[in-house]
Computed example of a mutant assay.
Amino acid sequence: MAVETILEVNDANFDQEVLQSAQPVLVDFWAAWCGPCKALAPTVDEVATENAGKLKVAKMDVDKNQATPMRYGIRGIPALLLFKDGKVADQIVGYVPKETIDKSIERVIG
């Protein structure tokens, strides 16, 4: 991960970093073997850079962390979950264009 604005979250720190965050948080559920996840990564990096200060962006490796993806019913990856006030405000599954992610963020954080 080249972008320092992206946080690596795991089962242990998820509640603290995501659910208790004062800012909305976009969580990218991914895996190293997932082609579409790798294709989406630069877009997620871009979103993190553009929204620095108003949106926290985090990534979670589903192979290393099973409890959290299970808790949120993640069945397909990449999956982007947008959390606001500790709750899922929006969900995007699969590889999508950046505009789709931007629109979702716009809806949630205005």
Rank of each mutant, 00 (worst) to 15 (best):
A2Q: 09
A2F: 05
A2S: 15
V3H: 04
V3A: 03
T5R: 05
T5W: 01
L7R: 05
E8G: 00
V9H: 10
V9N: 09
D11P: 12
N13W: 11
F14G: 02
Q16V: 08
Q16L: 10
L19Y: 10
Q20E: 11
Q20D: 10
S21I: 07
S21A: 13
S21L: 06
A22R: 09
Q23M: 07
W30H: 03
A31S: 14
A32E: 14
A32M: 10
C34D: 13
C34T: 14
C34S: 15
G35D: 12
G35R: 14
G35E: 13
P36I: 00
C37Y: 10
C37V: 04
K38N: 10
A39I: 08
A41Y: 05
A41H: 09
T43N: 04
T43L: 02
V44P: 01
V44R: 01
E46A: 13
N51M: 00
A52V: 03
G53D: 00
L55M: 04
K56V: 12
V57F: 06
A58F: 06
M60D: 02
M60K: 03
D61S: 02
D63V: 04
A67S: 15
T68W: 11
P69W: 07
M70W: 10
M70E: 15
R71A: 15
R71H: 13
G73D: 13
G73M: 11
I74R: 14
R75N: 13
A79C: 15
L80C: 07
L82N: 09
F83H: 12
D85F: 07
G86C: 08
K87C: 05
K87W: 09
V88P: 15
V88T: 12
A89P: 12
A89T: 07
D90H: 10
Q91V: 02
Q91L: 03
V93P: 14
Y95T: 07
Y95M: 09
V96E: 14
P97C: 08
K98G: 08
K98T: 10
E99D: 07
E99I: 04
D102R: 05
D102C: 01
S104P: 02
R107P: 01
I109L: 15
I109Q: 11
G110T: 04
G110P: 04
G110E: 06
